[in-house]
Design a protein around this nucleic acid. Structure first.
Lengths: 221, 221
DNA sequence: GAGCTAATGTACGAACCAGTACGTTAGCTA
DNA sequence: TAGCTAACGTACTGGTTCGTACATTAGCTC
């Protein structure tokens, strides 16, 4: 995360375009995640910044473009994290479990990102669709999954013939739901899916689920 | 769904409190689902009704309470559908698969409900928390799952020791994600999770996943 | 059919909020 | 150090939007 937390220069305000932009993006991310696109207030973002509303329009053009910029940065961070994935030295079963765990951890550590994605879906992903940058960002995780799947299928360990995109959807579903819907789920069923003491339980459950699916004996059906 | 589609009485406007309220709820459901809580416009809801904005305030009190009423009705509809569940004459494996399929179908058929739940989560489930009605609504599906799980575990068919709430979370995750995140997922990975020709594929995938998880040979781990 | 009340309609107000016109200054360059 | 421009601040506006004061009427009861 390219967040801004250098102390304010002691001598008072200095001009620093990059710093100002990054600070606006940081605060905007929080504000949009907090209140949704329409609930977010440009004035509020400006107020929580060391600069003014004028600068938001100067650098980003408007609220809509600011939200797009927030999404672009959030997805960039995710993709960079995915490039750190180092699981292909493991056997296919262990590799998939490890990948699921990393995905699980990443969702838990970035609730704001999850909220942004929920918000973007409410708006039909129109900002992603309108962003050149997000159109060609790709997904390193998908390539990793693809290779593990091939290796697992060739060795006969994996019986399911899913493709990488579907498996990614399966893993993401669980991780995403747990974070995104924790409030309604908690209120209705009295269980906090993100409670720290449940963390290991759900992490294992996800891995068990994915491995069971991939290695199941289909003849039993 | 207690929707309103009786033809307008030929003789012009008649007074009908129940009908007016139901019509407001119908339109409000669409509008909140379309634009989110803050994006929804009370004037727009009124305009698409045969009555006026005045009536919204007369019957519901305000935008906030209207949204709560929308949620209450949406969840009531869901719970009523759950009471139709008739799977306990099947063996545990078939019963769970059938339950997963019914859940899958229900999510697909009620995208507005999914959106409302997403929106409510963005707002920390504060409307559910503030609603007496939703506090004591319970979940028939959970009771069904509980009984199937006991039966499956007793007969030795199920090796996993999940509880009903966790299994419900697992099934819901997949169904919910597929509908709620179809826009961003489609835009980023080029695959429409809700495309009609993929429906059977994902429905089977969900069933396979849940059954594989419940019946997996844990000794292999 | 007189009278009452729940139900309804109209018109408006006050606050809010995205966006901008206009003016200022830091810090670089020649 | 004069001059230039990117970077920044202030103050305002125009439109929107939730909410309401006030007026009206349908349809019931006696």
């Amino acid at each position: 995360m390219t967040s801004v937390d250098e102390p304010a220069r002691p001598g008072g305000r200095t001009r620093d375009a990059a710093r100002t932009q990054a600070e606006i993006l940081d605060v905007a991310t929080q504000e949009f995640a907090r209140a949704g696109y329409d609930g977010a207030r440009v004035d509020e973002i400006a107020a929580r910044t060391r600069t003014t509303k004028r600068m938001i329009y100067y650098y980003f053009g408007g609220k809509e473009q600011l939200f797009t910029a927030v999404l672009e940065r959030a997805y960039t961070v995710i993709r960079e994290a995915e490039q750190e994935l180092d699981v292909e030295h493991l056997d296919p079963v262990a590799a998939i479990r490890r990948l699921a765990e990393v995905t699980f951890d990443h969702h838990e550590q970035h609730p704001d990102f999850i909220r942004l994605v929920s918000i973007e879906n409410i708006h039909g992903a129109e900002h992603i669709a309108g962003s050149e940058k997000l159109g060609r960002i790709g997904s390193p995780a998908l390539d990793v999954i693809r290779r593990i799947l091939v290796s697992g299928q060739e060795s006969g360990l994996f019986t399911a013939d899913v493709d990488a995109v579907d498996l990614h959807a399966m893993i993401s579903s669980f991780c995403f739901f747990r974070v995104a819907n924790r409030h309604t789920f908690g209120a209705l069923f009295g269980r906090d899916l993100v409670a720290p003491e449940q963390r290991a339980h759900y992490r294992a459950m996800l891995g068990d689920m994915v491995i069971a699916y991939l290695t199941a004996d289909r003849a039993a059906d």
